[in-house]
């Protein structure tokens, strides 16, 4: 049997492509929603971790460490299969988004914290001496500078979130991977899996290249 007929079968490709596009759309929605929610959660956690009262700092640290330790697949299965036992039944989309957000938030919090801690103490002192309050200092002085530092690692984290959306297929989420496996079963041919892989790469490769370029430019500027 010809290898092209098996893995890159044009006829199968044509028939299953609409399914894969539907899956891609869901993957992108899930990825985008989880990234945005993870950023908001992460910024809040970073603020609590840095500036909260001692018990809040302790709890935040605990949260961050736990959610960076738990395998995402385990968390996802707990959210989808275990929470219904306590009456919390979430749709596949919300389960996946919840699990992705909880984990992404923990990583994002550490990225924001590192970015804020990289800003020289003199910036905080100058802001305080001018009479800016804590919120103004963050919004006008610290975060605009920290954001430039954290964009490469945040982009990296976002790439990971999009890749991890594929795990949602185990909770019957019709994402790109799930559609591809179904299309493969229908066509009795693995071509849709190869096409799905190509689609993931096509979307994420430019982002990976962008991060490398930003990191190179960053180290070249020597900050």
């Amino acid at each position: 049997m010809d290898i092209f007929d098996t893995f890159l079968n044009a006829d199968v490709m044509r028939r299953t492509f609409p399914m894969l596009l539907q899956g891609l759309w869901i993957t992108l929605q899930l990825g985008a929603a989880s990234i945005v929610a993870g950023l908001v959660l992460g910024l809040g956690l970073a603020m609590a971790r840095l500036y909260g009262p001692a018990p809040v700092r302790f709890v935040t640290r605990l949260y961050i460490d736990i959610f960076r330790s738990i395998p995402l697949l385990v968390l996802l299965i707990i959210v989808y299969y275990a929470l219904p036992f306590v009456g919390l039944r979430l749709s596949p989309f919300l389960s996946a988004m919840g699990a992705l957000t909880l984990v992404s938030g923990a990583y994002t919090a550490e990225i924001f914290r590192a970015g804020i801690e990289a800003i020289p103490k003199g910036q905080f002192e100058a802001s305080a001496a001018l009479g800016l309050n804590g919120r103004q200092t963050m919004a006008d002085v610290i975060l605009p500078q920290a954001v430039r530092i954290v964009i490469p690692p945040l982009t990296n984290n976002s790439i990971n979130v999009v890749k991890d959306t594929a795990l949602a297929s185990v909770v019957a989420m019709p994402d790109l991977l799930k559609q591809a496996t179904q299309a493969q079963a229908l066509a009795a041919n693995p071509t849709p899996l190869i096409v799905a892989a190509a689609i993931y790469i096509a979307f994420l490769w430019p982002l990976v290249a962008l991060v490398s370029r930003m990191e190179r430019r960053f180290s070249a500027r020597g900050r």
Partner: peptide, 15 residues
């Protein structure tokens, strides 16, 4: 702090 201005050794301008 609104009434007291300060100038630092290392300037501390907002870059």
């Amino acid at each position: 702090r609104a009434e007291v201005g300060m100038v630092f050794q290392s300037f501390n301008l907002f870059p």
